[in-house]
């Protein structure tokens, strides 16, 4: 996989658009079981990413991912800033400039481990890990862009009947059951946007 400057810029724009265009939905999901700021926070973070975009796409893929992560850490606030930011930063640290699929599998695994450590959490606790972990399994198993995007969406749906163990929603106990986890939803949106863009790059 080789992403030139144009492709890198397209990737970043797609990631940002996926979150920004769903900000209201993310906020209403978070109002149901959290503090209602997830959409606003993620939008703020990705608007800050867009604000530095021309320069961002000049960087190599790993450096660009690290810079996105740092911007999200500094701007998003809430727990999702450090969690999503850490994912991007660790992905950037682990990926070579022109990653193979195997590189992507290995780097994503490292990034997921870093998110687990940052949130002291595991899959099954109604967090973004409930999307990241199963999506990684599909990626590692050779799934194509469509399979990855489908798993991301389904994994987010599967958080609805879960009871939250980590994060603000855990205060609600059983009342967190029946609502989709906002962090899982934003993770699935980002993954969907990423694979759609990357598939486009592969095909053209």
């Amino acid at each position: 996989m080789s992403l030139d400057r144009v492709a890198r810029e397209r990737l970043v724009r797609a990631l940002a658009a996926s979150v920004i265009s769903h900000a209201d939905e993310l906020t209403s999901l978070d109002q149901a079981i959290g503090d209602g700021d997830h959409g606003l926070n993620m939008k703020r973070g990705f608007e800050a990413v867009l604000a530095v975009l021309p320069g961002l796409a000049d960087k190599s893929l790993p450096e660009m991912l690290k810079a996105i992560g740092m911007t999200l850490v500094m701007k998003v606030g809430g727990a999702s800033g450090p969690l999503v930011g850490t994912f991007f930063m660790e992905l950037g640290k682990a990926l070579p400039e022109q990653p193979s699929r195997a590189d992507l599998v290995a780097a994503t695994e490292k990034a997921i481990e870093a998110v687990k450590a940052r949130g002291r959490s595991e899959a099954g606790q109604k967090t973004l890990l409930d999307v990241l972990v199963p999506v990684h399994a599909v990626l590692a198993g050779g799934g194509d862009a469509k399979a990855i995007a489908a798993e991301a969406a389904q994994a987010a749906d599967r958080t609805t009947p879960m009871q939250a163990i980590r994060g603000r929603a855990s205060f609600l106990g059983e009342r967190s059951i029946g609502h989709m986890d906002p962090g899982s939803r934003s993770a699935s949106l980002l993954i969907g946007a990423a694979v759609e863009t990357l598939e486009f790059e592969v095909n053209t």
Binding site: G77, G78, G81, P82, L83, R118
Partner: peptide, 11 residues
């Protein structure tokens, strides 16, 4: 205070 404050502080 709450979770995000802890996560951001550790970061």
């Amino acid at each position: 205070d709450l979770g995000g404050a802890e996560t951001n502080s550790e970061m």
